[in-house]
């Protein structure tokens, strides 16, 4: 038996010659990546610096590039403590506090509950799961429109219950300046909790069945198994879900606009609405920029440690 000979398969050898072509070949991967990376450097990091710069100017309707001082931040700082009557900034950050805590907390709790319920060998899981999750496919605008209608005291839930005979039922939060932020929470939770459920469900399905068998043999009740073994093992999922929800909460803008149009007297504002309004509507560009910088710093404080640890883990 002889081996097939393929004379044409033998490449010409350019002994030791490192040609220009070769150099180009070597640099090709970097050349391919470069435009994307440059775009990110300029349009993300460059623009962030630009925004920071603007926040130290006296820009009003149009950007001004004369550095003044930290006046914009000083004003935000003063407003932070101006609670009676509340300044727009005070409203925005307290709303973010309320919204953030409830939105994250309820989404996590509800998502975990649904995931655990769904993980009990449910007949029809394939039907139920998409039902919980579909709101995630809707835009905040559509979500806002739907809930605005549903929560409208004159036409929605309140009237429906009145018609059913619960005439004492009263639910006008969407028009109430002290309550309107909670309607944002309701719509937000409705939209995102199914997604959190999906994350937890994936986590539950990833747990080694032998560990659970061992717990059973050790005599753990189902409740104890979940409380002592399963839920602690879902810790990474809690972290991931928290990160996603937290950054969504801080970035939330559309939902407030569509659901409440800002609420009575801007009472439903979040910092993102504050930024948009001050920049584009109230001609206080410097203040708007300063608020954007504060939002950025808040997210950075949450995200950077997370990304750092994630990237370190995949170190190889």
């Amino acid at each position: 038996m002889t081996i097939t000979t393929m004379p044409t398969a033998r490449p010409e050898r350019e002994a030791g010659a490192v040609s220009l072509r070769g150099k180009l070949q070597d640099a090709l991967p970097k050349i391919v990546l470069a435009p994307s990376f440059a775009a990110v450097l300029v349009f993300v990091y460059g623009f962030i610096l630009w925004t920071i710069y603007l926040s130290f100017t006296n820009s009003k309707t149009f950007p001004s590039y004369v550095l003044t001082d930290s006046r914009a931040y000083q004003r935000l700082w003063t407003w932070t403590f101006q609670s009676d009557p509340p300044s727009s900034w005070y409203t925005s950050i307290t709303n973010l506090g309320i919204f953030g805590v409830l939105y994250i907390g309820v989404c996590l709790a509800l998502g975990l509950l649904l995931a655990i319920l769904l993980d009990q060998k449910i007949r029809g899981e394939g039907v139920l799961r998409p039902i919980y999750l579909y709101p995630m496919a809707l835009s905040f605008i559509v979500t806002g429109v739907a809930w605005k209608w549903f929560l409208d005291p004159g036409l929605g839930l309140e009237r429906t219950l009145h018609e059913w005979g619960f005439t004492s039922f009263h639910f006008d939060w969407i028009k109430n300046k002290d309550r309107v932020i909670y309607t944002v929470v309701i719509a937000g939770v409705w939209q995102a909790s199914g997604f959190v459920m999906a994350m937890f469900l994936a986590g539950l399905r990833g747990i080694d069945g032998e560990i659970l068998k061992a717990a059973q043999i050790d005599g753990a009740t189902p409740v104890a198994t979940y409380r002592r073994i399963v839920i602690p093992m879902l810790r990474p999922i809690f972290l991931s879900a928290f990160i996603v929800l937290a950054h969504m909460a801080i970035k939330s803008y559309d939902l407030v606009v569509a659901l409440t149009s800002g609420g009575p007297g801007g009472s439903a504002w979040l910092p993102s609405n504050f930024m948009y309004e001050y920049t584009f509507k109230r001609n206080e560009m410097a203040v708007g920029s300063a608020s954007a910088v504060i939002m950025l710093m808040t997210i950075t404080a949450i995200i950077v440690p997370y990304l750092y640890s994630e990237l370190r883990e995949t170190n190889r």
């Binding site: 993300v44 950007p63 997210i299 995200i303």
Partner: peptide, 13 residues
């Protein structure tokens, strides 16, 4: 990280 930034921080530029 660019995925996570609040876009308000780049809106004006």
């Amino acid at each position: 990280f660019a995925c996570f930034i609040p876009f308000q921080a780049v809106l004006l530029p």
